[in-house]
Amino acid sequence: MLGFLDFLGTVGGNILSLPGIVGVGLGMMTRKWTLAVILGVLIGIIETLLFNDFNLAGTNVYDAAIAIVIGVMASLVGCAIRRKGATV
Rank of each mutant, 00 (worst) to 15 (best):
L2A: 00
M1L: 12
A36T: 10
G3M: 04
A64H: 03
A86P: 00
L76N: 09
G25Y: 10
T10S: 04
V37M: 12
G71N: 14
V61G: 10
M28P: 10
V69M: 10
I21A: 15
G13F: 07
L18I: 15
L35V: 13
V88E: 02
S17P: 00
G44W: 13
G85C: 08
V22I: 15
E47D: 06
A64T: 07
V61L: 15
A64L: 14
I46Y: 15
I70Q: 01
V88I: 08
D63Y: 02
M1G: 12
A36W: 12
A86H: 04
L76G: 06
M73V: 13
F7S: 13
L39E: 09
G3V: 02
L18R: 03
G13V: 04
L26S: 08
E47T: 09
T59N: 01
V37Q: 05
T48G: 02
G71T: 08
F54V: 14
V24T: 13
I43M: 12
G40D: 13
V24G: 07
I45C: 04
T48Q: 01
A86C: 04
T34F: 15
T10K: 02
V88W: 01
T48E: 00
R31L: 06
M1N: 09
M28F: 14
L26R: 11
L35E: 14
V11M: 09
V72F: 05
R83T: 13
Y62P: 03
A80R: 08
K32W: 07
K32F: 05
V24K: 08
G20M: 02
V22C: 15
N14W: 04
N60P: 02
A80N: 03
I38R: 14
V24W: 11
G58H: 05
K32Y: 09
R31Q: 09
T30R: 12
E47L: 03
I38F: 15
L76C: 11
I66S: 00
L76T: 08
T30Y: 05
